[in-house]
């Protein structure tokens, strides 16, 4: 463990020397070639595989040790199950909205000059905003449509109560807030697919007497569809995994699964339920894994057009 951690820490400079060592020795090609991948594998092993293993195994271990299914059974009870349903609803709604509007924005970007300043600024903005979950985002929407928010106050001055104090912290509000990072993420993910569309295809359609409808129906849509669906699945997983935004927005209770996990980890009553936390985490991994498998399959299908 110790040696592995240290070699991972020193991983960066090590790689080039490990890589360099191979060809001079000659002969024993395979074993030495594997050394080149070792720092990476060791690092990922410690900081990704090991934690994941701890979660998976821990989900089936009881409070006093020993194998048990109690933790997993808890998932299907009352409020815990509700939080899974809410999580899925929120993720589905925000990923559909994000995919549609993100695709439109991506198309608007692609249809401009590929080297234009506008494109650079918009893609950079998307790069920031796609990661702009969390505390800042929660504050941004509180400052916009919270009780004292800009828009709330503006409408209140005109005698209209937009009632956001109620819905901002429920599913509709969370969906709106999530769209703020889902749309930019869609742009980032979908742009390469749109860039892969060759102008010659449109010209070919024109030459053959096809209309715009023909082009979209028979050329662009069949090529873009797998990318679009795949991107939507990625957005779903992204929303489903998000914790920080809701944590900063909703101060108590556990309306979605990540909040339940955080509660189980850091329960202020002192009754930390490690087993339940790991079981919930395992439940999340299973759902995200299913979604991401679909994404990977679709990605493979669409990849052949992006060469």
């Amino acid at each position: 463990m110790a040696a592995a951690a240290q070699s991972a820490a020193a991983g960066s400079p090590d790689i080039s020397t490990a890589v360099d060592a191979r060809p001079r020795k000659g002969g024993r090609r395979l074993p030495l070639a594997w050394l080149g991948a070792l720092p990476f594998l060791a690092y990922v092993g410690i900081f990704l595989i090991l934690p994941t293993g701890i979660v998976v195994v821990g989900a089936f271990v009881g409070p006093k040790g020993g194998v048990t299914l109690e933790n997993v059974k808890t998932i299907f009870q009352g409020f815990v199950f509700d939080s899974f349903v809410k999580s899925i609803e929120l993720s589905a709604a925000s990923s559909i909205i994000g995919a549609v509007f993100g695709a439109l924005l991506a198309y608007a970007i692609v249809s401009g000059h590929p080297d234009s300043t506008l494109r650079r600024i918009v893609t950079s903005a998307c790069g920031v905003l796609a990661q702009f979950g969390g505390v800042t985002l929660a504050f941004a929407f509180i400052a916009t449509i919270g009780g004292e928010g800009l828009i709330t106050v503006f409408f209140a001055d005109h005698g209209i109560d937009i009632g956001s104090n109620v819905w901002l912290f429920e599913l509709p509000g969370l969906t709106l807030v999530y769209s703020y990072f889902q749309i930019p993420l869609m742009v980032l993910v979908f742009l390469p697919a749109l860039d892969g569309i060759k102008p010659q295809w449109r010209e070919a359609t024109d030459t053959l007497g096809g209309t715009g409808w023909h082009y979209w129906r028979h050329v662009a849509a069949p090529i873009l569809w797998p990318s679009f669906l795949g991107a939507a699945l990625l957005l779903f997983a992204n929303a489903f995994s998000a914790y920080a935004t809701v944590a900063a927005l909703v101060s108590q209770g556990g309306i979605i699964v990540p909040l339940q996990i955080a509660n189980a980890l850091t329960s202020e009553t002192g009754a930390v339920d490690a087993g339940l936390g790991k079981a919930l985490a395992l439940g999340m991994v299973v759902i995200v894994a299913l979604v991401m498998t679909g994404y990977a399959l679709l990605q493979r299908k669409s990849a052949k057009w992006q060469r």
């Binding site: 951690a5 990476f40 900081f47 990704l48 595989i49 934690p51 994941t52 293993g53 997983a237 990977a296």
Partner: peptide, 30 residues
């Protein structure tokens, strides 16, 4: 390598942190 690199998309940060807590006990030690 591809699978390992894309794995964090399947293991959300909130899940990873559950398993990272014991690992970080070692990190802090070293």
């Amino acid at each position: 390598i591809e699978f390992l690199c894309l794995l964090p998309l399947t293991v959300p940060a909130i899940v990873l942190v559950v398993g990272l807590a014991p690992v970080y006990a070692w990190v802090t030690y070293f």
